Simulated assay, not measured.
Amino acid sequence: MSIQGAQWIKGMVTVHIRGGQPELLVNRALAGGLQLSSIRWTSKGLLEFELSVSDFFRLRTYLKETGCRVHVTARKGLPFLLVKAERRKLFAGGIVLFFAIIFMLSSLVWSVEVQGNVKLTEEQIRAVAKQEGLYPMQWSFRLADADVLSKQLVRKLPGASWVGVEKKGTKVIIQVVEQTVPKHTALNNPRHLVASTDAVVTEIIAEAGRPVVKKNTKVKKGQTLISGTIGGEEHSRTIVAKGTVRGLVWYEFSIASPLTQSVKVYTGEKKTKWFAIIGSRALQVSGYGDNPFAASETIRHEQKAAWRNWSLPIGRMKETVMEMRMEKRTLTEAEAKGIGILQAKADVLIKAGSDAVIRDEIVLHEKAENGKVYMKVLFEVEQSIVKEMPLVQMQGD
């Protein structure tokens, strides 16, 4: 324990010395074994120093010898704190009760979180955990060791290869690793890969099968791209054609983009509500009354109390109700045109596939009337153009 800590437990007093011979008092007290500290002269010409409570009572002998008088100006330490607590029994009892409640709340399991499960349902895992005594509102000291719980859960959960149990404050996390079952590859029938739409081929890679078109070739919908028939006429055989074929495809869109747009604007007026959080419940403590705004948006911010690595089930939540209104914004023809084309591009990519790339756009027609910009736009898109076609093999002799 540090020297300051020991002094705080004993209790320290600060005193002023009046009259007599202050210097002689200090010398005799130190020679007598008293521990005086922070010795100094005040601005009023009084000698000031600190000493422990026990040394204060031993100081009386030296006061009589030197003709000095003593006046206590400050008290600090555990003995004086206990005296105050005795005078304020209700307050001290409240503090003790508060910490007792915090200890009880932190000794409970408030939530059980399940992670890593795919095939096993969360309800199934929670049911097995409850059989082992692991469930919300359970006392932490009643739980078995994490290793024991893990082994029991693995034994009772079909398809689980490992289960980890970790306690973080008032939350318990169950981490599940399921057994990996090899996927059965489906048996495919012989097939061709044909064009899904009219296009110009930009790339063709045959993993299996015979490519029958080349790059920069224009193909029609349904035309064979990679054949599933290989070999000569006498020794031909059919296989499952595999490969990648990309091509340029054209999409024509008619766009009508309005010249006015509704925009959400915050006025700056707001109302704040505070809630006390205990477990999963929220108790409002301020900001009562109805929402005074005709149109508003609510933003919530929650703060949980924590002590070291423990997350306590108590906290507060701030709810801010912000007044807003919708305003009409007038766009220029260029802005409306840009917004319309951007929306059309999104529709093109949805239709063409996630791997599609827009290479070019051409505005074929454009006019503004009746509060809108009307356009006809042609998009040039590079995308996958293959689809499967089952290959029916003709029986020979």
Results as ranks from 00 to 15, higher is better:
M1S: 10
I3C: 08
T14G: 09
T14P: 07
H16D: 11
Q21W: 08
L25M: 06
L25H: 01
L36K: 02
L46R: 06
L47H: 05
L47I: 04
F56V: 05
R60P: 02
T61C: 11
A74G: 14
G77W: 01
P79L: 03
R87P: 04
A92Q: 03
G93C: 02
I95K: 05
L97I: 07
L97H: 07
V109R: 04
E122A: 05
E123H: 10
I125Q: 01
L134Q: 02
R142V: 08
L143D: 03
V154H: 05
I173D: 02
T180I: 14
N188I: 10
N189L: 14
N189P: 10
A195S: 00
S196C: 12
V200P: 04
I205D: 13
I205E: 14
G209Q: 01
N216Y: 14
T217N: 12
K218L: 12
K218M: 12
T224S: 06
R237Y: 11
G243M: 04
V245N: 03
G247T: 05
W250L: 13
E252I: 13
F253K: 15
A256F: 10
P258T: 06
K264Q: 11
F275I: 04
R281W: 13
R281K: 15
G287E: 05
A294T: 13
A295G: 07
R300E: 15
E319V: 11
E323H: 02
A336M: 08
G338K: 15
A344G: 06
I350E: 14
A352C: 11
G353L: 08
S354C: 10
A356K: 08
V363E: 06
A368C: 06
M375T: 02
V386W: 07
K387T: 12
P390T: 04
V392S: 15
